[in-house]
Amino acid sequence: MDFIAIFSIFILACFVGYFVVWSVTPALHTPLMSVTNAISSVIIVGALIASAAAGSATSKWLGLAAVVMASINIFGGFAVTARMLAMYKKKER
């Protein structure tokens, strides 16, 4: 993909982010942070590519280290978000 196409996606996604995040209720700002943490670890994609590539041993081990770190974040981030969200309960009537 050429740079302009990618850049367009990026700018549009910034706008989507702006509107979606303002619609998040302030009561859920902490879960918002932990879930954004989890999804920003989509960087694991780059780590997996590096780990699977032949050609440089250093690059492969850096990739594997990044896979571990991103994976801690993904599993930890989604799990802690789920734990928090399960605590939010409505009034019993």
Partner: peptide, 11 residues
Amino acid sequence: MIITGALVGSS
């Protein structure tokens, strides 16, 4: 990665 980055960055 770009969409996520933009979402998290704005958030």
